[in-house]
Design a binder for these strands. Structure first.
Lengths: 350, 350
DNA sequence: GTGAAAGCGCTAACAG
DNA sequence: CTGTTAGCGCTTTCAC
């Protein structure tokens, strides 16, 4: 970090306000921090002095004594390789999921006057950097969103005893709070809907099967279909990207041209799959009914509009943030998990 | 006997390292900050002591004395209304543009060990909050990305003499550094390509015409087509969203069914327009050639793949970041603008 | 209910 | 080349 001169002219300090108000620094501090036991009249004087001087508290000074930064990190982390020409972070935002998480976090944080620090950690090196960053006191804790199941960062956070909350249950149990969706319930909703629409030759496009959520959506769907008397459900695996949905649907068309319904494990893959059905002369929903998952922006960007399973990502992200703040507030707080319920959103594709 | 929480090992300070290394705090500080004039042998001793103690510098303390935070804000700002149920930030990431900016900023910042703070400012209140946040010393400066032309934040930043860099030239000149694209050049590239493909009945879908970039793309396209002997170019206006591209293409089809080429001012609108052409029985590119703009993820998510004008957003965002750091380093640095050149990317749609 | 004073951990003169 | 010293601006006992 290069050191230069201060970027802005010195701003007023507590001392200046105290002088203007004719009180001590301590009193001004009390007023600012909303501590009782300050005479209302003096409070008013102080407030005016603050307004008159244009005082804003210096966060570094405050943080130095309170040992709290009042800010948190939003860490998007993976477990793969990162290449120079195709850095991890460039792809992350292609999936609407991360935008929704960011939105939920910001929505919760902003009314509280706090703003998240955005970090990406994909390699051992960047993970170490992220941990060091938190240990330096740049943020009080982290919201963790993994792109892959085997992400080592959650465990590292726990080992460093840094407050953190996860999106989605980790594949192996570790003592960390998380929020998740009842994926199996969502998959059942999709199955029930396809059956209700009279579909009997149904297939599915699954997400990457090392991801618990993808497993749950697949097994939940198969179990529900089995309960409806359809024990065999053809499946093509994708990786949650649009292109993989396209490819998976091509395979399904080649191997099972007679299908009349598909459950696709996320909307982005469904968005890729719809044009493929069209190219094969299938009308949606008349010939093939399609149910997606997530109710992301891809669902309304698709034509026809996607019938899908709502995944309240923004609400879940807000809840994560609430949990994190609680953990920061009380480091001894017991870890908890909060499971959200999905719902069916009927549009045009099924 | 009270059962407190398990003893949290207070993290080591400079003092601890100094003691372990048998030197003074100042020397350790010098080693950490890479200041010359330290005996190599002592440097080595200090490094070992740092490793042994697991020392990490406390940023608040450093920031308090240097008056620098070593971090910057990435502010996405608009000028419209914000409603409870449909907050600004939830829509922002639906456009691949912001993800690309974030990616470029992070790509530049991360090797330098710094992470951006993410902020959204859409209302007067949130703008004031953003300014206050910077004035508090939470960040040394800001990367500003506006969603609308009349965004008041750039001027506020200048008035508060906070270092800032803009994406795109402001509609009215203010003394602030920015990066931008030669939009007219890009539009000309599109026009030349459509002409080279033999198209003679060409229309365009423009972006919102209060945005300078949208104006430039439209006027640049019209001027280039005029130079090719086509002075009249029908135009439908959109607002850079997928849905608006869809609607604009419907209007074009209704009013000018005979067109054989379209220039669409961004890829997202083009992605919306392509299915409309199909629904009207037009093959792309055989019947109607389509050229988009931006070369965003929407270009490769479209079918057929979009021929488009490359907008090097990530590089531009990296350059913004470089400029911002330079301004932070030297507050007296003269404002500059950097204009990037677009290029034609030929794929399947034209 | 209010003020005085002691640092939080670090950097930056200034001596030596 | 290295150590000493003086704060940065704030919160927080502890007296009054």
């Amino acid at each position: 970090m290069s050191l230069g001169r201060p970027p802005v002219p010195a701003s007023p300090t507590l001392e200046d306000v105290a002088r203007a108000a004719g009180v001590s620094r301590a009193t001004v501090s009390r007023v600012i921090n909303g501590i009782r036991n300050v005479d209302p009249a003096i409070q008013e004087t102080v407030r005016q002095a603050i307004a008159a001087t244009g005082y804003v508290p210096n966060r570094a000074a405050r943080s130095l004594v309170t040992r709290r930064t009042g800010s948190i990190a939003l860490v998007v982390s993976g477990a793969g390789e990162e290449s120079e020409e195709n850095p991890f972070h460039s792809q992350v935002f292609a999936d609407p999921f991360f935008g929704r998480v960011a939105s939920g976090v910001v929505g919760f944080l902003r009314p509280r006057g706090i703003h998240p620090t955005l970090m990406f950690a994909e390699t051992d090196e960047t993970r170490a950097q992220a941990i060091a960053y938190l240990r330096q006191g740049n943020a009080d804790g982290a919201i963790l969103v993994s792109t892959e199941a085997r992400d080592p960062l959650p465990r590292l956070m726990v080992e460093a005893s840094l407050p953190a909350v996860l999106f989605a249950r980790p594949p192996e149990p570790i003592p960390i709070s998380y929020v998740d969706l009842a994926h199996r319930t969502g998959a059942k909703l999709a199955a029930d809907h396809l059956i209700a629409r009279g579909r009997r030759r149904v297939a599915t496009i699954a997400g990457p099967l090392d991801v618990p959520a993808a497993q749950d959506r697949l097994s939940g769907f198969r179990d529900a279909m089995a309960a409806h008397g359809h024990p065999y459900i053809p499946c093509a695996e994708g990786d949650f990207t649009l292109a993989s949905g396209e490819a998976a649907m091509e395979r399904l068309m080649a191997e099972h041209p007679g299908i009349d319904g598909v459950f696709i494990a996320n909307d982005l893959m469904a968005q890729g799959a719809l044009p493929v059905l069209r190219n094969h002369g299938r009308r949606v929903p008349e010939d093939v009914a399609v149910v997606g998952f997530d109710d992301s922006s891809a669902a309304t960007a698709s034509r026809p509009l996607l019938t899908t399973i709502r995944h309240p990502v923004e609400d879940m992200a807000a809840e994560m943030t609430r949990l994190l703040l609680a953990h920061v507030d009380d480091p001894d707080r017991a870890v908890t998990s909060v499971i959200f319920e999905p719902s069916l959103v009927v549009r045009d594709s099924a």
